[in-house]
Write a protein that binds this DNA or RNA. Structure first.
Lengths: 233, 233
DNA sequence: AATGTTTTTATGTGCATACATATTCACCTG
DNA sequence: CAGGTGAATATGTATGCACATAAAAACATT
């Protein structure tokens, strides 16, 4: 029973992963406690702790004080999506990025918008629409409302060359956000902007960004047919 | 300049977050090193390390040895989606879960499937189609191919009452998976199963699960119109 | 049996220290 | 000046120890 040196937390983690995967420890099973594992692996308890904590964070282990550590029965796969600036997203795929502002101006928003952003119904917000291009073809249509009460500087911007997407990241701090993915059929105008048939199935990302209790911006991104959002898990 | 006790890593993290958010440390800025921060906060370096490492994991800080720690210029928002078993997903929304198997049998898969799964083109796979219901209304259509070479036990299952979704999680180990989200227009048969109009925009999740180098299963989930996948960031 | 109290136990965290490792930066050499 | 070399430095991690904390389990009390 030579223990081939599990002296760093990565290798401890690998070994634990191996045992889970090899079903030596089955889903739902209680695994040995940290002290015993440290003894077996010939390392410090804190090293084992680091490894197990990391696995718990990624959802493979369930840990509770006194109750011990067990293999998650039905691991909730955690797909981590990287929502980057659209320009980066396009360039990372090796395509040329392009940007066209469509329109921009202060407007009283629809009730659905002021409601979601919790602003007064008669309070005008900055509305910006723009098209993101990849290799000169339409990539995504951005429809955004900006709370000028929170980001007054946005009023001085026309978003002609810099997308609101990027400008806001640089100028508007935020604490958290809600994001939702869905599918919708292209309306006539949307279809014409994205140069796709009317009623095409579009991939949608809705994002609402908050600075503590105040909504900063609400954006809807419509992606042309065939768009895929991929990740690993 | 009283330092009101930053003696645990959470409060250190909160304070760092506050400074980033208050723009005392702006995007791109280099922040003080761990030793200095530990001194300022009156705690051990390892405590500061824990706090900063955690922030780096969530993408708010960029850390490099010797180069130091800086506030991420354009934070890549990491949206973590929890992809649970569909039954749990439905029940968590407080709705009644239902399940109907549509069909199930060994079949030679289309080339697109055998190609993606890297199985021989003439190798039959187990094909299962099923409908998931929420409050007796169609919720998601599951179309799945199972590699019986990897999960031979699946042949003994008819998936009449237990969904392949759940059965596999319990019986088939896997190491990793690819997942993709997109939108598609409902074909005639899909529309009829989901009882929605033909050509409706459906939300799609495609998942391909691997056990090391062998594909375990490939599944396509079609969600009815109006479905949203939400998360926080 | 129902309820409240104490003990036990596994994880969670903090600290001081030491050493590892990746980079940068300054310096040296041809 | 180009290019290589080595010192300096910030983060990364392992260790041993101590104590905190949650929660189960054992025990006592009514």
């Amino acid at each position: 029973m030579n223990s081939p040196s599990f002296r760093n937390w990565q290798s401890v983690q690998d070994e634990v992963l191996r045992r889970i995967h090899a079903r030596e420890w089955k889903p739902g099973d209680l695994i040995p406690n940290e002290v015993d594992l440290a003894l077996e692996f010939g390392c410090a308890r804190s090293t084992v702790n680091r490894a197990l904590r990391s696995l718990a964070e990624s959802g493979l282990l369930d840990r509770r004080r006194k109750a011990g550590t067990r293999v998650t029965a039905q691991p909730v796969a955690k797909a981590t999506l990287d929502i980057a600036v659209i320009r980066h997203e396009v360039e990372e795929r090796g395509r040329k990025y392009g940007y066209q502002r469509i329109d921009c101006g202060l407007k009283i928003p629809p009730l659905a918008i002021s409601g979601a952003m919790q602003t007064d119904a008669d309070n005008p917000l900055l509305h910006v629409r723009a098209l993101h291009l990849a290799d000169d073809a339409p990539y995504a249509l951005e429809d955004r409302w900006i709370n000028t009460g929170v980001v007054p500087d946005a009023l001085d911007e026309a978003f002609q060359t810099v997308s609101a997407n990027e400008w806001l990241l640089k100028h508007a701090p935020y604490t958290h956000g809600d994001i939702a993915f869905s599918a919708t059929a292209a309306l006539a105008e949307e279809a014409s902007i994205l140069s796709c048939p009317k009623q095409s199935a579009l991939f949608v990302i809705d994002r609402l960004t908050w600075d503590n209790t105040q909504a900063v911006t609400k954006v809807r991104l419509l992606f042309g047919p065939g768009h895929h959002l991929r990740t690993r898990l």
